[in-house]
Design a protein around this nucleic acid. Structure first.
Length: 467
RNA sequence: GGUGGCAUAGCCAAGUGGUAAGGCAGUGGCCUGCAAAGCCAUCAUUCCCCAGUUCGAAUCUGGGUGUCACCUCCA
C-alpha cells in the first residue's frame, strides 16, 4: 500500500512495524460543541484507511481519543453552570450518533483524556527530571523545545525569529516556541486534578502522547505506532509537539507514518468555528441520509481541500443512486462472490494512497456494464449473485451501498406519506389500465410535486424520493 | 513576513514523461401510451501564463499570475 507521509513529504510504501498488525491513532474531537462537516470528513477518511488495511489482511488496532478537558470546555462550564461531565457526555453522545449515521466503524479503543491524567503526569515527570521540561513561577510546566534537535521536522518550519504574535507571551519561557505541558491551578479554577506534579490540568498536546503510550505503543520498537492521523491543521503545533515530547520522553519516534486530511471549505474558505461558516453534521443529517453525506465527503481525494456545496452533494447523490438502482433491479438475489476483476481494480486504486476517484470510476463502469447485461436479458443466477456480491464488497470497503435498495430511496418519508404515495400510484395504475392517460399523467404530476419520481417497470410501478 | 498546498471541459474530479479516466449537466438515438429509469453515441486538438529540457510534457526545470492553508484554538 502506498500512502503519503507528512514527515517525508512524499508518497511512500506502507510497511507496518510488525508484519500482520497496524496500530493507528487518530486525534478525536474536543467535546465542547457538536461535530461539524470537517470532523465528519476526517473521521470518514481514516475509516476508509482502516477498512482498506483490514481488507489487506492486517489486524488493525484503531484508537481515537476524546478530549474531554480543555479551556473551551471550561468556558462552557462557566457559561452554562453545568458540570464537566454533563457537557462532555452530551457532545460525546452527539458525536457517536453522527458517526453511526456516517457508518464510521467504532474505534478499537476510545480513551478519554480525563481517565488518563496519570499517564500524562508520568510523562511530564520524566521530562521534568531530565530538564527537558521546566516550571515557571506560576507552577506551569513548559516543554523546552531547544532540547529536541528534531523539533519542527514534521511541520518543516524554521524557528520563528519574529516576536510571537501573542501579546501575552509567557515571559519566563526559555524559548518562544516552548509550549505548556501542565497548567497549574490558579485561584478560582474550578477544574483541576491533584497529582504528584501539583494541582492543575494538562496542556492540549500531552494527552495524545500519554494515551498512545498507555493504550497503543510498542515498547521495544523504534516507533511507538504505525500511523498517526488527523486534520492538516493539526500538523503544527499539535502533532509537532506530540512528536517532540514523545521522542524526548520515550526515546522512540511516535509514529512511523503521519497522515493528514485536507479541509472542508465553504465558498473557498476553511470551515471553522471562528469564521462562523461551519455546518454541524447533525443538521446536515436532517436533510440527507448519513450515507449520502458519507459518499459525498468520500468522493474527493483525502488530501485535497473539499469545497462543500449542497448543489454538489445532490450531484454526488445521483451517482450513488445509480448503484442502488442496479441493486433494485436484482432485488432479492443472494450474494455470491464479488467480480474478481472489479474487486482488484477497486482495491488497487485504494491502495494507491486512497485514490478514491479511480475507485469510484471503476464502480461506475461496473454499474453500467451490469445494467447493460441486464438490458440484454442476461438472466443467469450466477451473474446476478456476482453483481450483488460486488455491491457487498463495495459496501464493506467504502461503507456505502449496503442499505436496502428500496429504503434508500425513501429517506425522510413518513408512514402517512408512504400510504398516500402508494394510494396515488394504485389510482394511476387503474387509470392506465383503462387507457385513461390524462388521469394517469395528472396523478404522475401530482406525485412529482410531492417530490416523488415514478418508474413503470415490467413488474409494476416503483417510486423514489427525488431531491 | 515565513512555510506548504492547489490551478485539467459549464460544474465536480483522476491522470506526474508517450499522446486527456469517471460522474453531474447538455445533445442525438433505442426503449416507453407519454415519461422516468436503463442502454448506445456524442461532448477538452488540450490541461493558469511565459520560457526551457526532450523525439515526445497536463506531467520535468526556471520565472510569473491567481488562490487556499498553517504560523493563534481548530478535523
Amino acid at each position: 500500500m502506498i500512502i503519503f507521509d507528512t514527515l517525508q513529504n512524499r508518497e511512500v510504501e506502507f510497511i507496518p512495524i510488525r508484519a500482520d498488525e497496524v496500530r493507528i491513532y487518530v486525534c478525536g474531537p474536543t467535546l465542547y460543541d457538536h461535530a461539524h462537516l470537517g470532523h465528519a470528513r476526517s473521521a470518514i477518511v481514516f475509516d476508509l484507511l482502516r477498512r482498506v488495511l483490514e481488507e489487506l489482511g492486517y489486524r488493525v488496532v484503531f484508537v481515537k481519543n476524546w478530549t474531554d478537558i480543555d479551556d473551551k470546555i471550561i468556558r462552557k462550564i462557566e457559561e452554562s453552570g453545568k458540570s464537566l461531565t454533563e457537557i462532555t457526555e452530551h457532545y460525546r453522545k452527539s458525536y457517536l450518533q453522527d458517526m453511526e449515521a456516517l457508518n464510521v466503524l467504532p474505534p478499537t479503543y476510545e480513551p478519554k483524556a480525563t481517565e488518563n491524567i496519570d499517564s500524562m503526569v508520568q510523562l511530564v515527570s520524566s521530562l521534568l527530571k531530565r530538564d527537558i521540561a521546566y516550571r515557571t513561577s506560576s507552577g506551569d510546566i513548559y516543554f523546552d523545545t531547544s532540547k529536541d534537535s528534531q523539533y519542527l521536522s514534521l511541520s518543516k518550519r524554521f524557528q520563528d525569529h519574529r516576536e510571537s504574535r501573542l501579546e501575552n507571551i509567557e515571559k519566563e519561557k526559555r524559548n518562544p516556541g516552548d509550549f505548556v505541558l501542565w497548567k497549574a491551578k490558579r485561584d478560582g479554577d474550578i477544574v483541576y486534578f491533584e497529582t504528584e506534579i501539583g494541582e492543575g490540568r494538562p496542556g492540549w498536546h500531552i494527552e495524545c502522547s500519554a494515551m498512545i503510550e498507555r493504550h497503543l505503543a510498542y515498547r521495544d520498537e523504534k516507533y511507538s505506532i504505525d500511523i498517526h492521523g488527523g486534520g492538516a491543521d493539526l500538523v503544527f503545533p499539535h502533532h509537532e509537539n506530540e512528536a517532540s515530547q514523545s521522542r524526548c520522553a520515550t526515546n522512540r519516534e511516535l509514529a512511523k507514518y503521519w497522515l493528514h486530511n485536507g479541509f472542508v471549505k465553504i465558498d473557498g474558505e476553511k470551515m471553522s468555528k471562528s469564521l462562523g461558516n461551519s455546518f454541524f453534521i447533525k443538521d446536515a443529517l436532517k436533510h440527507y441520509s448519513g450515507e449520502v453525506l458519507r459518499f459525498y465527503l468520500l468522493s474527493t481525494h483525502y488530501r485535497q481541500d473539499f469545497n462543500f456545496s449542497e448543489e454538489e452533494l445532490i450531484k454526488s447523490k445521483k451517482r450513488l443512486d445509480k448503484l442502488y438502482r442496479l441493486k433494485k433491479r436484482i432485488y432479492g438475489t443472494k450474494a455470491g462472490e464479488a467480480n474478481p476483476e472489479v474487486r482488484k481494480k477497486i482495491l488497487d486504486a485504494l491502495t494507491s494512497d486512497l485514490n478514491i476517484s479511480v475507485a469510484l470510476s471503476v464502480i461506475d463502469e461496473f454499474v453500467s456494464d451490469s445494467n447493460e447485461r441486464l438490458d440484454r436479458g442476461e438472466k443467469g443466477k450466477g451473474f446476478k449473485r456476482e453483481v450483488i456480491g460486488t455491491i457487498e464488497y463495495i459496501s464493506k470497503l467504502l461503507g456505502v451501498g449496503g442499505k436496502d435498495a428500496y429504503q434508500y430511496f425513501q429517506f425522510g418519508i413518513s408512514e402517512e406519506e408512504r400510504e398516500e404515495i402508494e394510494n396515488l400510484i394504485s389510482q394511476r395504475s387503474k387509470a392506465k389500465k383503462n387507457r385513461d392517460f390524462a388521469t394517469a399523467d395528472r396523478i404522475r404530476e401530482e406525485l412529482q410535486s410531492l417530490g416523488i419520481q415514478i418508474m413503470d417497470t415490467p413488474n409494476g410501478t416503483i417510486w423514489e424520493k427525488i431531491n
